[in-house]
Design a protein around this nucleic acid. Structure first.
Lengths: 190, 190
DNA sequence: GTCTATACCTTGATAGAC
DNA sequence: GTCTATCAAGGTATAGAC
């Protein structure tokens, strides 16, 4: 059965890709519509404005993130495995067509996005950071991680380096991403 | 004496500001010209295309960076002071109107910038990373820093987190920048 | 060195036919 | 749900007067 939401989902997928490849401002309806074989007006039918579209991309990601991290599978993960799960998301971004982090891609155009989108962006960033903080706290308590400083600060450091490296991976060096991952892990053991 | 390069310099200053505030793609000649009280055609006289302008902003930054780090003043700095000098650059970006790192701002539009600009961007990123690596090596040797892993990996981690946090400082939390700085320092001592 | 004027393109978005 | 047609806005860039 081909439902009406079929195209809507495909639009979200493509929009997410192009948002992460080019950022909010440079991303356009034309990119999405042409790759889908439809006209830009058809995209406007599903998502009246650009900010609606970006907002739904963000909300869908946040829902997915929450579903994963709160789900039964994650409950069985130890802190290292949870961290690796997060890293894998970013590695997929980087290797799958040099994409940036969704949060970073929208943040880099922060001055140009509407306020409503900023709210969703702040929510998403807070959700990820909060989860990572709890993972670090758990690892510290169970002794599998060993580091100085506050878990919340450590979470900010790890998250910003992941965001940063997926932004400049194309610029920095051949293999900046794996270098950063290696160092993140080195700084979690003693 | 008012030289011809007076306006040219002002254009570079403004272009740098707007590049770091909005990224390459969203930044425009109009922003620069209007704030300077001239027309966009006058800017084109000094810098024929957008990529010429961005290129010169980048080159000027790289020259300044090299001049500082190779100059006599820096020779007297210990590794902590050198690191603080780099951090201060980023802190100025963030506090001076929520600007991003110049490298990060251009990297986020990497798919849209011309190849010639990519070269200058890669050069600049390599220059900074190389310098930071040498600072970390020096600190490790003299015993003022203590960390696991390779200095070059550590340099990539620190640099990407600085780039990342100046990108998402406006998104993440109230004081993400100082949190990240605090953790970077915690991870350099034992 | 700066101006006016203009050419040309791409966007986001809307109206209305099918 | 998708189309054609169209619009206004804003961008890069050039030509030529002053």
């Amino acid at each position: 059965m081909k439902t009406s939401s079929d195209t809507k989902e495909k639009i979200l997928d493509l929009a997410k890709y192009h948002l992460q490849a080019r950022g909010y401002y440079a991303f356009s309806y034309h990119q999405v519509s042409s790759e889908l074989g439809i006209k830009n007006a058809a995209v406007h039918y599903h998502y009246p404005t650009k900010s609606h579209l970006a907002n739904d991309v963000l909300i869908r990601f946040m829902d997915w993130f929450k579903e994963c991290t709160l789900g039964p599978e994650h409950a069985g993960f130890d802190p290292w495995k949870k961290l690796d799960w997060l890293i894998a998301i970013y590695r997929d971004n980087v290797s799958g067509g040099n994409q940036m982090c969704l949060i970073g891609a929208l943040s880099s155009d922060y001055l140009m996005i509407p306020d409503s989108l900023k709210v969703a962006l702040n929510d998403t960033a807070a959700t990820v950071r909060k989860w990572l903080t709890s993972v670090l706290e758990e690892g510290l308590k169970t002794g599998v991680f060993d580091f100085k400083g506050k878990p919340s600060d450590k979470a900010s450091l790890i998250l910003t380096s992941l965001i940063g490296v997926s932004q400049v991976n194309r610029t920095l060096t051949e293999n900046a991403f794996e270098q950063v991952i290696e160092q993140i892990k080195q700084d979690l053991i003693r």
